[in-house]
Structure formats: structure tokens, C-alpha cells
Design a protein around this nucleic acid. Structure first.
Lengths: 161, 161
DNA sequence: CAATTGGATGTTATAACATATCAATTGGGG
DNA sequence: CCCCAATTGATATGTTATAACATCCAATTG
């Protein structure tokens, strides 16, 4: 059952519990959850929408955590590598993982207006792509599955859609 | 049944027939199939793999068809808008459509090594994304479905995978 | 045949996204 | 304590994409 996130929830709790899980994961796997990395994830969790690397960098920079692009990209590389965040290819932007800890092949509903993103799990078989790949001997390393569109809130706010 | 394209075929015929169909489509819809647009599609068809906008621009430039980035991006906008080409978001690159004329929601198997791309049609229901969208009131405008990996040919060529 | 008009192009500049490189630092294991 | 490896800091550059504005050209129409 896909878990969809266009609804209200207890944000402060969701942030702190996810950070705690991330911390635990790092401890368990001997990964370093450094201040920049931690803060980057915290920002993504707080925003709860896709942010560009330079948007993140601007925030980190304000807080004295680094000014040059590699700061943001290194943090994002770490977070995506650890499975704490995902890149939305259709936006060249990044979002906190909504299923931290579960090994998953994510799929997204992306609102192009407000950049809110809902994350769903894809089926284990990867659907038709998986069938097609199996039929031809193609070896899938990663899937990019994104639906770009307008979220319920933005649909209502649109004057003359 | 998905149509998968990691096999040999009569390339010259495939190019010319696709160009002819594109031309017919433009005539029917009062679109202008100008030299730059035509040549851009021809290049994509001939390469039969994903090309970056600046790769295309280099070729067009050599042929006196324009030197500035907008030349390539305008041609690509036209081709993607008309359904003659698709953007592969995972590569920031572009490919000729393999199902020109059929209204379709494409899915791709993308070889990250040789940039060869196989195009399959997605199911009409758009799978779990469609279900998720329907459940929440999300309005899908476009889907991005890409499997990044290694194609059969490159798997074999890999020395020590 | 002008005049109009709307899409297509030409051109310059810049915005936005991402990585290479190398030196300096830090923190844990031998 | 020293070494190794990972992280950070800093500068520069590479890559992808669009904004803005001028101009051209071909089809319509008066």
C-alpha cells in the first residue's frame, strides 16, 4: 500500500523521530552524521518539499556551515547514499526520505507548483520496466519514477485552471 | 506488450520513415518542420541514443545551423512538444521517440554506459502512481519513468563487473 | 501590392545545476 | 604518538538551461 503524504501531520515529531532514526542508522553502520549532514537533513525534513542544492546552500551559508557548492553537494551525496534523501530528477531538487530505514525503490507525486512531494513505494517487481528488463537482459541499477502534476491544494488555489 | 529496442534493425529505413511520419504530422497539424527541427530529429534518430543539448548544438553548429544554446533548446522544445522526442531526466539528455504518432506515456530502459535507450509504453492506468494520484486528488500532467542500468551489450563488454 | 501579424531565428548575457582539484584538518586504530 | 582515511575548506571550472530583446520571414488580408 503506497503511503501518500498530502495531508497534515505532527511535523516536529516527524522531524525529530526521523533524525533519531538517521542517527541510529549511522551509528550502526559506522557512518558519520556530521553537523552539516545533520542540518541538511533537518532542513529537508522541515521544508517537506523539494529544495535545490543552491537553496540548501543558501540556508547552510546563513548558518555558517559553509558557502561553496561542494558543501551542499557533499551533504546531499551522503544523504542520498545513505538513503536519507532522494533526488527528484524532474526538478533537479532533493527531498528527505519518507520511509527512512526501509529498503525501497521510491516513486513520487511531485507538485510542480509548490514542489511538495509525496513518496510512495513501488511494487517489488518494478512493474512493466522490470518485465521489460528481464526480457532483454537489461540490468536495472536504479529506477526514476515520478509523476509531475498539481497537488490537491494547488488545484483548489488555481484561479482559472 | 512493450516494444523494446536493444536489437539490430534497418536503420536507414527507420530514420526515413520516421521523418516522413513526422513531416505528415506537421502538415496535418499546421506545425512548421523547419530545417533546424528536421535536422535535429534526424540526428537523434541516427544516433539512436540519448544526446545532450550541447552535443546536438555542436553538430548543428558544424553544419551552419546555429551556434547559440537557444537554437538547440528551441528545436528540442518543438520536438518534445510535438511528441517526436523525449527528455531522459536521469541523464539530462534527449532521444527520438520510438513510437511516433501513437499517443503514449513512455517508459525507458537507459544504459548509463553507452546511453542507448529502449522505449516501452507504460500501462494505461499508470500503475501505482495512477492509483496513488487518484486516491489523493493529485492531477498528473506528465510521468517520468526511467530504469537506469546496464544494457545487455555493455554487460558483456564489462571486464570485471 | 502594401500593411499586418505571428511564429521562427539570431544574439548576448546570465541563471541554475554540478564537479574537479588540492590543501588543510580531524579522528580513530595500530 | 603516528598514520591512514574520511571530511572539510576553498577556488575554479564545467555543464545544462533560460531570459531578454532584436530581427527576419512568410501567410493573411485589406
Amino acid at each position: 500500500m503506497p503511503t501518500i503524504g498530502f495531508h497534515k501531520h505532527d511535523h516536529a515529531t516527524c522531524i525529530s523521530s526521523t533524525l533519531a532514526r538517521a542517527e541510529a542508522h549511522c551509528t550502526a553502520h559506522s557512518l558519520k552524521f556530521t553537523p552539516v549532514r545533520r542540518r541538511t537533513l533537518e532542513i529537508l525534513l522541515a521544508e517537506h518539499r523539494a529544495l535545490g542544492a543552491y537553496d540548501l546552500l543558501a540556508i547552510l551559508s546563513n548558518e555558517g556551515l559553509g558557502t561553496a557548492p561542494p558543501v551542499a553537494y557533499r551533504a546531499l551525496d551522503f544523504l542520498t547514499g545513505a538513503g536519507f534523501a532522494h533526488k527528484i530528477e524532474g526538478l533537479n531538487a532533493y527531498i528527505a526520505c519518507a520511509h527512512l530505514g526501509e529498503d525501497h525503490a521510491p516513486a513520487f507525486l511531485v507538485c510542480t507548483r509548490c514542489k511538495t512531494v509525496a513518496e510512495a513505494d513501488t511494487a517489488a517487481d518494478k512493474g512493466r520496466l522490470g518485465q521489460a528488463a528481464a526480457a532483454t537482459g537489461f540490468k536495472i541499477e536504479k529506477t526514476v519514477i515520478e509523476a509531475m502534476g498539481i497537488c490537491p491544494a494547488c488545484v483548489e488555489d488555481t484561479p482559472c485552471a
